[in-house]
């Protein structure tokens, strides 16, 4: 469904662009004709597909890293102690800051390689994940937890398992949403300074005023992004189905 939605939106956008071109009589230099766009989409697909896959892999790695760190920090900070309250306040304040703005600093210190792209992808999706996990992990599910507390059987693993299980839908939604953010973060990082990935290809195409190449890049990254988010949603559905069975 997500894939179909993307293709419909992409084709609609393309049609609008071509309609504007022909209605306003714009030049091929500004908006390329359909033949040129299809040449880049089909004949030069490899030039865009591989960078798009490269970006997707970095985004997935950054996303997984952000999820792991957010789970660990939220689990540790869930207790309501003074330190955990400090972490919560810091997370609320930091998430209001546009992380993309610190990307140039990351590139200065780490260079234009993989680590910078990975770090920026993680940072962009980390704070929304952390805030959601903090909310979920620190909210007691009294009707389930009461027995374990009464009988002295409550430990950290049981508490976490109960809260994760009871909020599984919310967690899957948050993870899927943050997957888009990770993708955005990686592309922005590549757009700024990296020497790899689809963002880098878009930057080069921009300098050459090559709209057909930009459109082709957008198509392939949209395709990869949709497939990744579909995989995350499918994994969530499978987990829920397995648990509910």
């Amino acid at each position: 469904m997500r894939l179909v939605q993307f293709i419909v939106i992409f084709l609609t956008g393309l049609c609008i662009l071509l309609a504007v071109k022909y209605l306003a009589g714009l030049s091929d230099y500004l908006i390329p004709p359909p033949e040129e766009i299809s040449f880049f989409l089909f004949n030069k697909a490899g030039d865009f597909l591989f960078p798009a896959l490269n970006t997707t892999i970095v985004a997935i790695a950054g996303h997984v890293l952000a999820i792991l760190i957010a789970v660990i920090v939220a689990f540790w900070a869930r207790t309501g102690s003074r330190i955990s309250n400090m972490v919560k306040t810091a997370a609320y304040n930091l998430q209001a800051y546009p992380v993309v703005a610190i990307a140039p600093i990351v590139f200065i210190f780490l260079g234009d390689g993989l680590s910078s792209r990975l770090l920026i992808a993680s940072l962009i999706c980390y704070f929304p994940l952390l805030l959601s996990f903090l909310g979920i992990f620190s909210d007691p599910v009294t009707d389930v937890e009461h027995f374990f507390r009464e009988t002295g059987r409550m430990d950290a693993v049981t508490e976490l398992s109960i809260r994760v299980f009871e909020n599984l839908d919310k967690i899957i939604t948050v993870i899927t949403g943050s997957g888009t953010l990770a993708m955005v973060g990686t592309i922005v990082a590549e757009f700024l300074a990296a020497t790899n990935g689809i963002g880098y290809v878009i930057r080069k195409s921009l300098y050459q005023n090559n709209l057909a190449a930009i459109l082709s890049s957008l198509f392939f990254i949209g395709l990869c992004s949709s497939l990744y988010l579909m995989a995350v949603e499918a994994a969530g559905r499978m987990i829920k189905k397995k648990i509910a069975a």
């Binding site: 389930v144 009461h146 299980f165 648990i243």
Partner: peptide, 13 residues
């Protein structure tokens, strides 16, 4: 002493 009430739930997994 233990306290039990009617809306308690068991872990669902």
């Amino acid at each position: 002493g233990l306290f039990s009430y009617n809306t308690e739930r068991l872990p669902g997994w």
